[in-house]
Write a protein that binds this DNA or RNA. Structure first.
Lengths: 128, 128
DNA sequence: TCAACTGTATCAGTGTATTAGTACAGTATG
DNA sequence: CATACTGTACTAATACACTGATACAGTTGA
């Protein structure tokens, strides 16, 4: 699990960390119960303040991506068992609307938009 | 073309305007060469500052959604003729990756994610 | 030309986001 | 208990985002 961060990217540091962890989990590069580097360790590696890493971890926990054991470290959460599918759909729908609007606005065909999403899904799934 | 805006939504006013215009264009509720309300008119209707509307319009023009005639008003642009498809795909790919990562993270199946996007696409296309 | 409209530029004020410094609290382990 | 680790809370400095008041510049049409 190597993370990197670009302070002059415009994107906040904690969001960069969140995105990379989410991507790793989505791509199964991080599996349930895998340990994440500690707040201080990662902060030292990235040469940033521990609070910035902590903020990313807190957001990831709020999103159900990781679970943190106070004093014990942070671990990848195992799926979202208690989450109903309707709730998952409710969370994802805004993203779906977003890409639909942007894609139609660009005058792309629905098939082309769907193909693009499928490509990205395969890039994550690897073996579908 | 009725726009509404919620000052306490957390989302900046100019982004709310941009989203609604983009949605209307994507859904063909606004067609090429349709006139948009003037900066001052819309600002008065929404009870906000003309500058805020102007900022939304400027961003929309930068994105190729509308075209503004200095002193003459703003109009919906006609597609993006000069834009290569590879460029359109380049613009849309980050959104595709975003929904792929979020969806997989939620432990949804690729088919379910694609279905959701397709639903939103149909919601835009079928509005005639 | 004049009046009324269009969008634009400039400046200022308020609030919040972002990051960091520092101190605190819980847990593992010897 | 003691030490060294874990995450957390509080505070503050800085920068920037957002909105608005106001003045400017170009276009339209009588």
């Amino acid at each position: 699990m190597i993370l990197h961060v670009n302070p002059s990217s415009g994107l906040p540091l904690y969001l960069q960390i969140e995105a990379q962890v989410k991507q790793a989990v989505a791509a199964a590069a991080l599996k349930a119960d895998d340990a994440l580097p500690s707040v201080r360790k990662l902060a030292a590696d990235l040469r940033i303040n521990p609070n910035t890493v902590a903020r990313a971890y807190q957001n990831l926990e709020r999103d159900g991506v990781i679970r943190t054991v106070p004093g014990g470290g942070c671990y990848v959460a195992d799926g979202m068992p208690g989450l109903l599918k309707t709730e998952k759909v409710r969370r994802l729908r805004p993203h779906a609307q977003q890409i639909a609007v942007e894609g139609m606005q660009l005058r792309l065909l629905p098939e082309e938009i769907l193909k693009l999403v499928q490509e990205e899904l395969e890039k994550l799934g690897g073996k579908s």
